[in-house]
Each structure stands twice: as structure tokens, then as C-alpha cells.
Simulated assay, not measured.
Amino acid sequence: MSKSLVLACPQCLALNRVATERLNDNPSCGKCSSAMLPEAPLELTSANYEALVVRSELPIVIDFWASWCGPCKTMGPIFNGVAAEMGTRMRFAKIDTEAQQALAGRFGIRSIPTLMVMKKGQELARQAGVMQVGQLKQWLAPHTV
């Protein structure tokens, strides 16, 4: 019997059960037909955080950033590139610390960029500062599906 994961749709937030061996097949939402694992990182807000992070079973790496932050501008393309490459083994998302201050405050974010890996709402790892592609992949490896 194959293992499956519950994932929330990034568009309609409906919960979908997806077999792990189908994660590479670009699964779509059973309710709205949107891609369940888009290549671009998801934008997390207080409105979608619960469904996309807490109720979804696929690990998620979150980039806490701000538009005025120089190191965040350096980290952005690196994060987006790794998201496009590894996006079927974990979800990638961003939290704009200026627009989502309460969400950033909930995690005690003191410096940006800060990356955090979570699964079912539990923090598994945290790293502040810019990482190069190889460093980021190595840091994420233990948490991928």
C-alpha cells in the first residue's frame, strides 16, 4: 500500500490526499484543479498559514524576508531556484515580515533572511543569513520527502 500525504491547495485551501509516488506528477487540486506544488514559493499570510503549514503533511521551508533587506535580495533568487528544483519533495514559501508582522513575531524572527523548516506546524530547523545553493540543499536534505 502506498503512503500518502495530506496537502492544502495553495489556491482554495482545500485539503487533498496525494500519494507520495505522485508528488512528481504535478498533482492538481480535486476541488479547483490548481497545481498543488507550484514551482514558485507560496506567499504565506495569516489567512492561509494554518492550512498550508499546520494541516499539510509535506515539510515546508519558509523564507522570512523584507523588500528593503539587502541580504534578502541576495537570498531570494537562490531560494526560488532551489524551490523550482526541489518543490516536489517539500513546499517552499515566503513570509514578508513587513506585511505579516504578527506571523513573523509568532516565531521570534530577529534577523532576516531567516529560513525555517516546519512539518505539521512544528519547527524542525532554523537558519539565519544567506546560504549558497549547495549549502541550502545540504541543509534541507534531512527534511525532504
Rank of each mutant, 00 (worst) to 15 (best):
V53W: 02
F79V: 01
Q138K: 14
V82P: 09
P38W: 07
P59Q: 07
A47R: 15
F64T: 05
M1R: 10
P27Q: 06
L115Q: 09
R55Y: 05
T45F: 00
G70E: 12
R106N: 14
M36I: 15
L15Q: 15
A99K: 15
I109C: 10
W139L: 00
C69H: 09
L124S: 00
C72K: 14
L52I: 02
E85I: 06
L115E: 04
L115V: 00
A35Q: 10
Q135I: 03
K3L: 15
R89E: 15
G76P: 07
I62G: 04
T97L: 03
A84F: 05
L13Y: 12
L58P: 04
Q135D: 13
G70F: 07
L37E: 12
K31V: 09
A40C: 04
F64C: 02
N26W: 00
Q127E: 13
A66G: 07
K31R: 10
A141S: 12
S28D: 00
V54M: 04
E39G: 14
G30Y: 08
S28G: 11
A83E: 03
Q122P: 01
N48D: 03
M90C: 04
N16W: 07
T74L: 14
A14P: 07
C69A: 03
I62D: 03
A99Y: 08
M86P: 07
I62A: 01
T74H: 12
K31L: 09
C9H: 04
P77H: 06
S111N: 14
L15H: 12
M1P: 10
L5H: 11
Y49G: 00
L140W: 09
F79E: 07
P71M: 01
H143A: 00
M1W: 06
F64G: 01
A104N: 04
G121E: 09
R126G: 04
V61D: 07
S2D: 14
V54Y: 03
H143E: 03
L15R: 14
L115I: 06
T114G: 08
S67N: 11
D25I: 00
V6R: 14
L23E: 11
D63Y: 11
L44W: 13
A141V: 08
C32R: 04
F64P: 03
I60A: 03
A83G: 02
A47F: 13
L52K: 06
P10Q: 08
K73W: 01
V82K: 01
K94P: 09
S34N: 07
T97C: 15
I62S: 02
Q127C: 06
Q101L: 11
E50P: 00
I60G: 02
D25T: 09
M131P: 12
L15T: 10
T144H: 08
N24F: 08
W139T: 04
I78N: 09
R126C: 01
E57C: 01
K73T: 06
Q100F: 11
